[in-house]
Design a binder for these strands. Sequence first.
DNA 1: AAAATGAATAATGAATGCAAAATGCAAAGG
DNA 2: CCTTTGCATTTTGCATTCATTATTCATTTT
Lengths: 223, 223
Amino acid sequence: MLDSPLIERRSLATELVERLRGLIQEGQLRPGDKIVEPELCERFGVSRTPLREALKVLAAEGLIDLSPNRGARVARISPEAVEELFPIMGMLEALAGELCIGRMGTADLALLEALHTRMVAHWRAGEWAPYGRLNRQVHEEIFRIAGNGALAALYQSLLIRTHAIRFMARKTPERWAEAIDDHERIMAALRARDAAALNLIMREHLRHKADVVHEVLKQLDEG
Amino acid sequence: MLDSPLIERRSLATELVERLRGLIQEGQLRPGDKIVEPELCERFGVSRTPLREALKVLAAEGLIDLSPNRGARVARISPEAVEELFPIMGMLEALAGELCIGRMGTADLALLEALHTRMVAHWRAGEWAPYGRLNRQVHEEIFRIAGNGALAALYQSLLIRTHAIRFMARKTPERWAEAIDDHERIMAALRARDAAALNLIMREHLRHKADVVHEVLKQLDEG
DNA sequence: AAAATGAATAATGAATGCAAAATGCAAAGG
DNA sequence: CCTTTGCATTTTGCATTCATTATTCATTTT
């Protein structure tokens, strides 16, 4: 018998969780926005029950804040939260890098090199969007090679919380160059399979990312 | 005006999340158990709506598995999951230790010493329960001193997933001694404020904990 | 007797309804 | 004119209801 792909069966709540995550990530719903249940119900054509289930899940993920009888708001990320979250993400990336070094074959490294090279090319060309996409791909690839699904999932969930901010403002050229430099050093450590060095660089890289987010938050405050 | 503590307002769903977490932690609900909604509704005297919201949250936390139209089960922890989760927890504890060293005052260290000493005394007396309690307190205290709430919350959520297993079987005397030795070395690194050393020990300590859980899982399989 | 079928039963998914709480706003009072 | 109070409206929390999907078990079939 041909193995047919299983029929995907999803609850409305699950679907809604993903849709809402998407809306928050791409800025349709912005940090601080009030979420009114009847409004979203109409938008998606569902009743309040599955929507409320979805909101509870998003609240557990930290993407929205729920206050009893007062409804939901898209979570704002505070400078304090950045100072808490990014060191954690640094550790997770450091672990991913370490596992990656222990498991990657030549093909894996070659793929990372290719992605890195293309990323740098886009930087040189000043092409922000494709640069960002490849940057993300490099990190995702490292997690994939690391082969720890729970680690990847955890990192992803923390990343989303900060992503809502980042698309809202642009990096300075200096910060951009700094990020490229970090990535060069990451690649060097991967080539050398130097776990200790990669560990340090990853955490430093995330420290820099935190700095960028702080600058963005300041921009938003002023502008 | 005297600042009165705010009146605590909780939804039934929130209450249920905590109650159910408790039931799972203390083994009233065991890994693999089917969760039947009407049953729990009767038990807690609530309708299915808030219960279902709670189940969605617990599923997001990884404590239960939900399959569409087929209901919920308390999540089983697999050896593979242990191999994924414990290295992550090791990194989180390592970060907590590092932050702790950077922030602890003499009073903090003294408190840790006191807890440690009492813990060792219970070990010598072979008193398992109070030992376990103090062990937990030591780790909690380190996270408290570290002063990163998100880190503590994340660690806690990973810890709960494994706790459901651990109460089910007992450590061997060798493993117990090993844990004590780890803790001695943790205290030594804290006294010396040696972050690098603490980092290594914490990760090793969690590696040992993972080994213990593997042994417990094997016991459960056989027995 | 074992496997397959189908009807009865029970559980889940989602919508609706209702009571309690919050919000907005106009009128009354300072 | 600004603040406060009370009422109408809106929104949320939860229970109930209805429809759909599993599960169980007796019956049939091989």
